[in-house]
């Protein structure tokens, strides 16, 4: 699978951008938290596309955001 570039994403419509990013993001989120991957990916897709692209290339920031989303999710459910 070729990497998703900023220009590829910029050429797409806003809702297509999120879809493209989501397809790349989901497998990465699934590796971190398989049970909540669908929900967490949906939450992360609310973030700016430019920031999401950086997260796709940075496992550390992706991890941090997944943890953040999990905390929000748990607080919401409590």
């Amino acid at each position: 699978q070729e990497p998703l570039t900023a220009s590829m994403v910029a050429a797409a419509l806003p809702h297509e951008q999120k879809q493209m990013i989501g397809e790349r993001l989901y497998p990465l989120v699934y590796e971190i938290h398989s049970q909540l991957a669908n929900k967490i990916t949906g939450m992360l897709l609310e973030i700016d596309s430019s920031e999401l692209l950086l997260m796709l290339e940075s496992p550390e920031s992706l991890h941090a955001k997944v943890e953040e989303a999990l905390a929000v999710l748990q607080a919401h459910q409590a």
Partner: peptide, 22 residues
């Protein structure tokens, strides 16, 4: 009430509906 609109889940291969309300 003032319920938080929760981002919908993302499922691979399924169009994500998250931005429809923005």
């Amino acid at each position: 009430g003032s319920s938080i609109s929760w981002p919908p889940e993302f499922h691979p291969g399924v169009p994500w509906k998250g931005l429809q309300n923005i």
